[in-house]
C-alpha cells in the first residue's frame, strides 16, 4: 500500500515536473527570443531583408514612373540596402521601446535627408528646364511627393508589421504583459527546483530512483515539445503565412522557423539528457543493490 501511494505521488510530481520543464523552456524562449530585439536584428541580417526591400521598392518606383513622371534613378541612393538598414532598425527599436513601456507609441521618424535632397534637386531641375515657378504650389507638390515616398519606404521597412499589430491591439496587450514576464524565469525555475527537491526528499535513500523519475519527466517533456515542433518544421506549416510581401514573409516565417528550430534542439538535448540520467540511475541502482547484497550477506 505504502509503495502504491509513493508511486502515485511520484507520478503526480512527475506530471507537474513535466509541465514545469515545458513552462521553463517557454519562458526562456519568450525572454531570450520573442522579447529580445537582438533576435529580430539577427533575422533581418540572416534573411537579407534590406536587399529584398531594396528590390521591391525599386520595382515599385519604376512602375510609379509612368504615373508620377519621377524617374526611379532619383530614388536610387535612398533605396540602397545600406540606407534602408537604419529605417528597419528604427522601426524595430520603436516596437520594443513601446512594448518595454519606454515609448508612448510606435510612430517612427527615420532620417530621410538623402531622399528629400534628391527629390528636391530633381524637382528644381525640372522646374528650371520647363520654366515653372517655384511658388507655393511647387513646394506643395514637392512636399506631397516626399511624404508619399517616405511613407512607402517606412511601410516596406516595417517588416514585422508593427503598424498592423498596434492597430489590432496586440502590441498594447504585449506592453501590459511585459512587466510580468520579468518574473517568468525565476518563478518557473523556482517551481521546478521545488519539485526536484520534493522528489529528492522522497527518494533520498534510493537516489537511483530520483534520477529515474527526473529522467522520465525530462524525456516526456522533451517528446511533448519535439512532436509539434518537428511537425511544424516538416510540413513547412508557417509557409501558409498569408502576407506574401517578400520581406515580411521572410521576416515572420524566418523568426517562427528559428523559434521552432530552437525548440527542436532543446527537445533533442532534453532526450539526450534523459538517456544520460537513465544511465546514471542504472549505475546508482546497481551500486545500491550490490551494497544491499553485501549488507544482507553479512547479516
Amino acid at each position: 500500500m505504502k509503495r502504491t501511494i509513493k508511486y502515485l505521488a511520484s507520478v503526480i510530481l512527475s506530471l507537474l515536473l513535466i509541465f514545469s520543464f515545458i513552462a521553463l523552456t517557454c519562458s526562456v524562449l519568450l525572454r531570450g527570443r520573442a522579447l529580445n530585439p537582438a533576435a529580430y536584428h539577427r533575422i533581418v541580417a540572416e534573411q537579407h531583408l534590406t536587399d529584398k526591400i531594396s528590390v521591391r521598392l525599386t520595382n515599385y518606383f519604376t512602375q510609379q514612373e509612368n504615373t508620377t513622371g519621377i524617374p526611379v534613378s532619383v530614388y536610387a541612393e535612398s533605396l540602397k540596402s545600406e540606407n534602408l538598414e537604419p529605417v528597419v532598425d528604427i522601426t524595430l527599436r520603436k516596437l520594443f521601446d513601446y512594448v518595454y513601456g519606454v515609448a508612448p507609441d510606435t510612430e517612427t521618424k527615420p532620417d530621410f535627408t538623402v531622399l528629400e535632397g534628391d527629390l528636391r534637386k530633381f524637382f528644381e531641375q525640372y522646374a528650371e528646364e520647363n520654366g515653372i515657378a517655384r511658388d507655393a504650389a511647387f513646394e506643395d507638390a514637392l512636399r506631397k511627393n516626399m511624404d508619399a515616398a517616405e511613407k512607402k519606404i517606412t511601410t516596406e521597412c516595417d517588416v514585422f508589421k508593427t503598424g498592423s499589430l498596434a492597430e489590432a491591439g496586440l502590441l498594447g496587450k504585449a506592453r501590459k504583459i511585459y512587466p510580468l514576464t520579468v518574473w517568468l524565469i525565476p518563478v518557473t525555475g523556482a517551481f521546478t527546483l521545488l519539485l526536484l527537491l520534493i522528489l529528492f526528499l522522497m527518494y533520498r535513500r534510493t537516489v537511483d530512483r530520483w534520477f529515474y523519475w527526473v529522467a522520465s519527466s525530462v524525456l516526456v517533456s522533451s517528446i511533448l515539445m519535439l512532436v509539434p515542433s518537428a511537425w511544424l518544421s516538416a510540413t513547412n506549416w508557417f509557409d501558409r503565412f498569408a502576407v506574401k510581401s517578400e520581406q515580411i514573409f521572410a521576416a515572420v516565417t524566418g523568426f517562427l522557423y528559428g523559434l521552432t528550430h530552437t525548440v527542436t534542439v532543446y527537445a533533442v538535448c532534453g532526450i539526450a539528457a534523459a538517456v544520460l540520467l537513465y544511465v546514471i540511475a542504472g549505475i546508482c541502482g546497481t551500486v545500491r543493490h550490490r551494497k544491499e547484497a553485501v549488507r544482507n550477506a553479512k547479516h
Binding site: 509541465f19 519527466s217 511533448l224
Partner: peptide
C-alpha cells in the same frame, strides 16, 4: 514492469492533459 511502463504512462497522461 513499473519501471518500463512508467515513462509511457507519463507520456499518455501528460499528452492527454495537454
Amino acid at each position: 514492469a513499473a519501471l518500463i511502463i512508467t515513462p509511457f504512462l507519463l507520456l499518455l497522461l501528460a499528452g492527454g492533459m495537454t
